[in-house]
């Protein structure tokens, strides 16, 4: 047991207590949380900081706005309804096409206009939001996943989670929805995580339920061939989210759109630790490197991304490595 604990320490593996006390407690000011917990605020903030997000079609703020929804969406070929304060992917409805007044979901199921309005009304009522508070409906462009990912996700769109510490991207992982995770990208729901090499966005290893896998469990695509396109752009986008929120320890979720490239999907002030398992490396080494002031200061987001890709990516374990 103690042997195991020593080894974990030597490999710079971070535990929840350390994350909570030392990183979230120290670097994430409580009053900044609403910026990331409310997706609409994140989105509006992103516009101000030139961080690209899926285009906003409109919002519904009150129950009586629901009737005006048709006017907003009927010009669109596809769109997404989502609760502004939802969690874990609940309450998101993707409409792929509209035919003869019927709205079709990606799995082919049709929804009537009334069905769509009821869903919006449920979101407003707080059915999907944390704590059941009344919510706002966001209507935004549907992200069309980059074709290079077509074989790596079963339903749902794969996203890339980047941990950003004091503005430096320190670790990245791709999250692929599986049949078991029901199209959602949360690892504890059965999605699979693929660690990404920080310097060029190539796959390292895949894990599902803490077990190493080499192929996607549903599509059987070889995970080792996975390569994220536009990697420097994506890293810079992640780094910019720090300037935008000032949250020192931040989880950035990014999708790769076929047409628009990397887009910010949402931010998380309490990102999980499974990313360490997918990367087969602990976070502490890279976090301490920055905490000890070894990274240059006063860099722009692009420069910090560059520093992450060249220097942080090559760090092994912790700096004061045990023998």
């Amino acid at each position: 047991m103690f042997q195991l604990i020593r080894q974990l320490k030597a490999h710079g593996v971070m535990g929840l207590n350390q994350r909570n006390v030392h990183y979230i407690g120290k670097y994430n000011a409580r009053h900044l949380y609403p910026l990331v917990d409310d997706k609409l605020r994140t989105k509006l903030l992103a516009h101000d900081f030139h961080v690209r997000v899926p285009g906003l079609i409109g919002t519904l703020n009150y129950q009586h706005d629901v009737k005006s929804m048709a006017a907003l969406v009927d010009g669109q070929s596809s769109f997404v309804l989502k609760p502004s304060r939802g969690s874990g992917g609940r309450g998101i409805m993707v409409i792929e096409r509209i035919e003869d007044g019927v709205y079709y979901k990606p799995n082919g199921a049709g929804v009537t206009r009334e069905g769509l309005q009821r869903h919006a009304s449920n979101i407003l009522g707080g059915l999907f939001s944390l704590g059941g508070h009344t919510d706002v409906v966001i209507i935004e462009d549907r992200v069309i996943s980059d074709p290079s990912f077509a074989h790596y996700s079963y339903e749902g769109i794969p996203d890339i989670r980047v941990i950003v510490f004091q503005g430096f991207p320190v670790m990245a992982m791709m999250r692929l929805a599986t049949h078991e995770s029901d199209g959602k990208a949360n690892l504890h729901q059965g999605a699979c995580g693929v660690g990404l090499n920080l310097s060029h966005g190539r796959a390292l290893t895949g894990v599902q339920h803490n077990r190493t896998i080499t192929k996607h469990p549903d599509t059987h695509a070889n995970l080792a061939d996975l390569q994220v396109k536009a990697w420097p752009l994506l890293m810079a986008l992640a780094a910019r989210c720090y300037d935008m929120t000032k949250l020192g320890y931040l989880g950035v979720d990014i999708v790769l759109d076929a047409e628009h490239g990397p887009l910010l999907l949402e931010l998380n002030a309490r990102p999980g630790l499974s990313i360490q398992i997918a990367n087969k490396v602990g976070l502490a080494g890279r976090l301490e490197h920055i905490e000890q002031g070894r990274a240059p200061k006063g860099l722009s987001a692009e420069e910090r991304a560059e520093y992450a890709m060249t220097t942080l990516a090559t760090l092994s374990h912790r700096t004061k490595d045990a023998a």
């Binding site: 047991m1 195991l4 974990l8 490999h11 593996v13 207590n17 803490n210 190493t212 602990g282």
Partner: peptide, 15 residues
Amino acid sequence: TGYRLVEVVRFKSLA
């Protein structure tokens, strides 16, 4: 700020 006991099992593969 040390590991929780269940984390030692969770992160075992990293050791």
